[in-house]
Design a protein around this nucleic acid. Structure first.
Length: 458
RNA sequence: GGCGUCGUAACCGAGUGGCUCAGGUGGCAGUCUGCAAAACUGCAUACGCGGGUUCGAAUCCCGCCGACGCCUCCA
């Protein structure tokens, strides 16, 4: 298995440090609002990777955190006049709903910052004791000059790094690059008691502490969005490595590219932020998942209406093949083709894997013997399951309504019955009129040897 | 300015120093169908520009043009 490691900028052969399990940590969301399409690329990508790793190595201990302490959360809570818990519970629940709709399996661990304050404080104390951090004016700061490899992940050196810095340097910092581990809270802000007074953790320490708590000092894979390379992951490395006496923090760093919308970065000012919560009102979650897997995870992905429509048609083809195999029992003991596995094991090349999947679809559609069909069905289902696709019955896929104004299944069946009566009496004008009526309502019909079937079109 | 990524047919999107170089959508044609649809078969369109290396480059090197990301909120 090959994975691209940001640390080296190359694909490297991957195997877990502990042969009995793979450990993987992925930075999760800060739950202060609904998550957008870009927020879901890491969960979908690393969910897929977890499936591949599980098949290859057996056990995968996978942690994806929920950040429930953050100043944006505080701001949202203050705005509504509620406890931060109200905000974080609401949006964590929404996040989980969206994940489920996208076919993302639960992770082994889902640590929350509020549940790891003791571990965070303990890690900060260790950093202070080893002279990698210092307290100043109620803050605790990590001293980046104390860590020789600082900048290695993001390939920046500390000198030039700060030369072009565009931020004001807080007066209590020993060095401009030092970052906050702990900061004081005002009386009206959420805070927790600590040796440095009542306060709250800085942005980066949570992941270090929680990763240590649930997975151990050295993990195999750490993932997240490309934008997190600096400063977030750079800082995590510094903290964890120094807190662990120099032990390697994460062996492989994987970063997914951004999702743009109509060639532009999503931003509130452009008003083009696509919330999955909203998208799900107009399309099945599986469509969104497929879009996110259509490009290679390290490349930028451009979300447009076209790519979503494309994905829906692809799923129609995939499910169409399965529907034609409805009466066939999938062969036992048959798994995904090797070429498909090879694609995924080559740095999670999902576009190539999808190409293999479509080759399989063509083969299945052409198969004549029941034995061949049974074999292809088994291969198709197994391969798709690695991508987290085709997890529902084809009939369910084709009949799912995407808006409440859609015709009911009963009404559709009724119209089809009327049409077939017309066809039987060779009254094709009426038959075609009814077909047109259905088509206008987004329902496409197919006359086959064993009756007429229907599906909702995009 | 520093670091990094990318430019493949109408669109999406892999890949590779050389086999008439994926796959999907869309287009055209054929088979099938009352007609369609689905499915199958066939066809067409490509590697940003200019140099270089090489027997051979879209693939490696250099330059240019263009797009984009990060540089202490950010998936």
């Amino acid at each position: 298995m090959q994975l691209h490691n940001t640390l080296t900028g190359q694909k490297e052969a991957f195997s877990p440090l502990d042969p009995s399990r793979v450990t993987m940590y992925v930075c999760g969301p800060t739950v202060y609002s609904f998550a957008h399409i870009g927020n879901f690329r890491p969960p979908v990508v690393f969910d897929t990777l977890a499936r591949v790793l599980r098949r290859r190595f057996g056990r995968v201990d996978y942690a994806r955190n929920i950040t429930d302490i953050d100043d944006k959360i505080n701001a949202a809570a203050a705005r509504e006049g509620v406890d931060i818990r109200v905000i974080t519970d609401r949006y964590a629940a929404a996040y989980h709903e969206d994940l489920k709709a996208l076919g993302v399996e639960p992770t082994t661990h889902e640590p929350r910052v509020t549940e790891h304050l003791p571990q965070i404080i303990a890690m900060i104390e260790r950093l202070i004791a080893s002279n990698h951090a210092y307290a100043a004016e109620g803050h605790v700061l990590f001293h980046t000059l104390s860590y020789g490899d600082y900048g290695r992940l993001s390939k920046r050196d500390e000198q030039s790094l700060m030369a072009g810095a565009r931020i004001e340097v807080a007066p209590y910092k020993k060095h401009a690059g030092d970052f906050v581990l702990w900061k004081p809270s005002a009386d009206d802000q959420p805070g927790w008691d600590s040796p440095w007074g009542r306060g709250r953790p800085g942005w980066h320490i949570e992941c270090s502490a929680m990763s240590e708590a649930v997975l151990g000092n050295t993990i195999d894979i750490h993932g997240g969005g490309h934008d997190l390379i600096f400063p977030h992951h750079e800082n995590e490395i510094a903290q964890s490595t120094c807190a662990h006496g120099g032990a390697v923090y994460a062996r492989f760093w994987l970063h997914n590219g951004f999702v743009n919308v109509n060639h532009e970065k999503m931003s509130k000012s452009l008003g083009n932020v696509l919330l999955v919560h909203e998208l799900l009102k107009t399309m099945p979650g599986e469509v969104i998942r497929l879009v996110l897997l259509t490009g290679h995870y390290r490349q930028p992905l451009d979300w447009t209406d076209d790519v979503a429509a494309d994905a829906r048609r692809k799923l129609d083809r995939l499910y169409g093949a399965l529907r034609d195999l409805a009466g066939i029992e999938a062969a036992a003991g048959v798994s995904a083709p090797q070429a498909f596995i090879d694609a995924l094991e080559d740095d999670l090349n999902t576009p190539m894997a999808l190409a293999e999947l479509f080759e399989l679809v063509r083969a299945a559609n052409k198969a004549e013997s029941d034995a061949d069909k049974a074999r292809f069905k088994a291969q198709l289902l197994d391969a798709a399951s690695l991508l987290g696709l085709l997890q529902q019955e084809p009939e369910a896929w084709f009949s799912q309504a995407t808006s409440e104004s859609d015709l009911s299944a009963e009404r559709i069946e009724q119209l089809i019955a009327e049409r077939n009566a017309a066809r039987k009496s060779r009254n094709f004008a009426d038959a075609d009129r009814i077909r047109k009526e259905l088509a206008d309502a987004g329902v496409l019909i197919e006359d086959g040897a064993d009756g007429t079937r229907w599906r909702r079109g995009g």
